[in-house]
Design a protein around this nucleic acid. Sequence first.
DNA 1: ATGAAAGCGCTAACAA
DNA 2: TTGTTAGCGCTTTCAT
Lengths: 335, 335
Amino acid sequence: MGVSIEDVAHRAGVSTATVSRALRNLPNVSAATRQRVLEVATELDYVITPIASRLASGRTNSIAVVAPFIGTWFFGEVLSGIERVLHREGLDLLLYAVPDERTQDDFFARMPLRRHVDGVVILTLSLSPDQQDVLRSLRVPVASVGDPLPESFSVGIDNETAAEIATNHLINLGHERIAMIGRGRSLAGRFTAPRQRRRGFERAMEDAGLDVPAVYDIDGEYSVPGGASAMAELLSLPEPPSAVFAQSDEMAAGAMQVMRRMGVQVPHDVSIVGFDDHELAEVLDLTTMAQPVAQRGEMAIEAVLTALAAGQVKTVAERELVHTRLVVRSSTAPR
Amino acid sequence: MGVSIEDVAHRAGVSTATVSRALRNLPNVSAATRQRVLEVATELDYVITPIASRLASGRTNSIAVVAPFIGTWFFGEVLSGIERVLHREGLDLLLYAVPDERTQDDFFARMPLRRHVDGVVILTLSLSPDQQDVLRSLRVPVASVGDPLPESFSVGIDNETAAEIATNHLINLGHERIAMIGRGRSLAGRFTAPRQRRRGFERAMEDAGLDVPAVYDIDGEYSVPGGASAMAELLSLPEPPSAVFAQSDEMAAGAMQVMRRMGVQVPHDVSIVGFDDHELAEVLDLTTMAQPVAQRGEMAIEAVLTALAAGQVKTVAERELVHTRLVVRSSTAPR
DNA sequence: ATGAAAGCGCTAACAA
DNA sequence: TTGTTAGCGCTTTCAT
């Protein structure tokens, strides 16, 4: 065990330098020599040891993806898009999850990515200035799916407008008592999408001259059970809403589950609109704001690869907005 | 840029060896020295370069996870369980997807994991003998979520019995025309679960003296749209089934979607049972065979870590079966 | 086109 | 407890 480049060199009657060149398809190797080296390598079942190669070259051949969660539909989609591209390029994908604020702080404090990856993709995390500095100190191209990142590429959506459109859809159907299931107002700000979507919701309501009681702005934790609890609370209000804007399809699904259980008919009694166009939104017949999720991952990683190919340590400092669109199904109806 | 262990050593007035020891919390360093080294390291913002450390020590500190897909609920759950454990241990998670047979063959032919990871977790892939050999040649602990692996740890479920139970549930409700949505019979064998579930289904039907016309065994590609197409076909049969066993909740969901669209009532006209207890199964009110998905990932990675801690190159050669259970909701009813 | 040799930045014997 | 010194297995100038 442990065939090394020297073994190949000896056997092929050339130097290790030549073996290295031949195996990496570098120029300045005669066809005959290259051929011979490849033969011997196959014969000996030799492959370059990545670790050694990395130390010598300084190139790590891997990209880190940092996400708050893995295992939700959204992140699975994004990850899947990124993996596809990385696989094509022969790069490794290192996955890190930072599920809560403490873990995130810790992650940036230890910064395990230092001299460890050639690039980074950040998913839907909003970083403190300090954390952005840490990232910058890595001196590798970074891109983000979600929040803009100073001096880097990011691909987002217009959350505020999208939420406004979703809400207007309900307003146009004649609803007046409209609640929103999102993320607690007081929760510290690791995520900006919830705040932006709230603003869009509030803007739509205000423009329509509609009132939003405080109890109509409720936390659903961006999860199915969270959406369920939130809806249960809304339904026990003296004046329950006749329509709900859920900031994610998962929360909308949880809400629908509770309504079914309590005999509340969708859309007859309550209309509901979600966000994302989750794989199962169509099955649930859920009206929702669709966004091209996997594509966002692909765009982000492509930006990193482009920078890498150009030898830059930064991605192009641009913010790309991909479009969202309202997909009307039958979870929404006139009041 | 590029603070090295030598810089720290100089500044702290000790040797690089001592710095290395102090930073890794090895014994045989006086408290005072360790203290001093840590101070200097912080001062200089120094962290060990993983690549160099890996080359010198031979330990890569990373684990590879190989999955057919990422981005489906099942794999997201498993991955999530694995990541949690790995994060706790400070190990890196390298993610590889092999979505089709060609990619899988390629992956094992090139074997990018050689000398690159300390352990491997294989998710629901059935490996050819050659591929198993390649894996063995890595000489690192391997564990599998799914198929048994010779000489390694694996954590599975009893697919056949689970499918039998699901089918019996339908039979006990008085159904006789029962169809199964699974994976095409002729499709080459990267996955064994579909075959095992078919066997369970067939056994239950046979034991009940019920006939399964060939057209009742239909391919749903283990996806939502696949399940939808399959159900559409079943419904256009001269004698459509009165009950369906879907080998995954996603396929069941697709089937339900088609039924709703075609005005077929669940469970009044057709009963349906799924498999997995997907996050949204409860929302869909889908009867299903539940299994502890994330836990399977955790068990597999723990086996790898245990072997690693013991300095073994193999996990314990055991097959663990985790239990499944039928969760009855209202997608199934008496004929 | 090819080879010699100096690193890459650490870790691990072994010695002191 | 601490230091010295070989490597780990490659890549990459610089010669030739």
